[in-house]
């Protein structure tokens, strides 16, 4: 049971929407995002409010794309990186939609996919929204130092993405369907360096991909892309190596949202992007949209999360990690 895939038969992805910050918009994927904001405060007083505002706008945009209103949505679930998930709660407040707050660090969006799909499969919802966000400035406050403080970072460090991605799932047959999913288990490679989260998450990503491969009876070749969330260059190369040692070589089909969102040469982002907003904004904007245009057929989205908090780092604890896999497929 625990190593079997969660098979979905009636969950479809009706629409997706991504809103990002200035730095993300200046990256190579600028043409794909639905909207962006140059003000890091999003017109609000604090960075925490800004993150909620970003998600709120993005959800409204998502619903307007699908010509839905709040009243059409049966459940909304999502998460972010702030203490007690407040950015998400404020974003969903006022919508009147039954709400579930999730936390899986940067893997949150994969949790939201699986959660939404389960609601729809069980008949608990006709329409469900899943979303996740992160904001560079609020995450820096949460995990590191004040913005204006002159601190230096190592080459393996990653840059938190300012972005929010929202996805509208429905039981009405349409363009893209959620085929199956595999819930990851916690993998702790005993990495303690919070500036190398890629290495901490690579083990979890590899574990989930290998378990998925075993459970799917080697359907791996049919994927156009196997997409990890935010391993960054460092973590992605390590994960590829771990997979290779287990006899699985994905080659150029194995990509990472954290590497795609920024231009590593021109933008000062060290190992790449990270954060709950990374996969959530890139997957829909870049991959699902190409799926809808018929350029690709099947993808495996592997959301990766490093489950640390600032105190656990100071206590010199290791960084446990988790990765959840979700398969999206175009309906023909």
């Amino acid at each position: 049971m625990r190593d079997a895939l969660l098979e979905f038969s009636k969950t479809f992805l009706k629409a997706e929407c991504s809103t990002v910050g200035k730095k993300e918009y200046e990256g190579p994927l600028s043409d794909y995002f639905d909207s962006w904001e140059k003000d890091e405060y999003f017109g609000c007083r604090s960075f925490d409010e800004a993150e909620s505002e970003m998600s709120r706008r993005n959800i409204n945009f998502l619903l307007s794309k699908a010509r839905y209103s709040y009243g059409d949505i049966d459940v909304i679930c999502g998460g972010d990186l702030l203490n007690q998930c407040v950015a998400t709660s404020f974003a969903a407040s006022g919508t009147g939609i039954p709400y579930f707050g999730l936390y899986g660090a940067c893997s949150t969006i994969a949790e939201a996919f699986i959660c939404s799909a389960l609601f729809i499969e069980t008949g608990g919802a006709h329409n469900a929204v899943g979303f996740a966000s992160s904001h560079f400035c609020s995450a820096e406050r949460q995990y590191r130092f004040p913005l204006e403080y002159g601190s230096t970072r190592t080459p393996t460090a990653q840059n938190t993405v300012t972005g929010s991605g929202a996805y509208l799932f429905t039981s009405d047959r349409c363009g893209v369907r959620v085929k199956n999913a595999l819930i990851g288990r916690i993998i702790d490679k005993e990495i303690t360096d919070a500036n190398n989260m890629g290495a901490a998450m690579a083990g979890a990503a590899a574990d989930t991909v290998l378990r998925y491969r075993a459970a799917s009876k080697d359907e791996m070749d049919s994927f156009d892309y196997i997409i990890t969330g935010d391993l960054g260059r460092e973590g992605h190369e390590i994960a590829a190596e771990l997979l290779r040692r287990q006899g699985f070589t994905a080659g150029s089909r194995f990509v990472d949202c954290g590497m795609l969102i920024y231009d590593a040469e021109k933008q000062d982002v060290h190992s790449g992007g990270s954060g709950a907003g990374c996969m959530s904004s890139v997957l829909g904007a870049y991959f699902i949209s190409r799926m809808r245009r018929g350029e690709i057929k099947r993808i495996l989205a592997v959301g990766t999360g490093a489950l640390l908090n600032p105190n656990s780092v100071l206590q010199k604890k290791t960084i446990p990690a988790v990765a959840h896999a979700v398969c999206f497929e175009r309906e023909d």
Binding site: I191, N196, E237
Partner: peptide, 18 residues
């Protein structure tokens, strides 16, 4: 690869600060 070897592997491939 056990965790100790993994840690060493990760360290060995880390790009050093100039």
């Amino acid at each position: 690869m056990d965790n100790k070897q993994y840690g060493e592997y990760v360290k060995s491939r880390e790009k050093r600060s100039p």
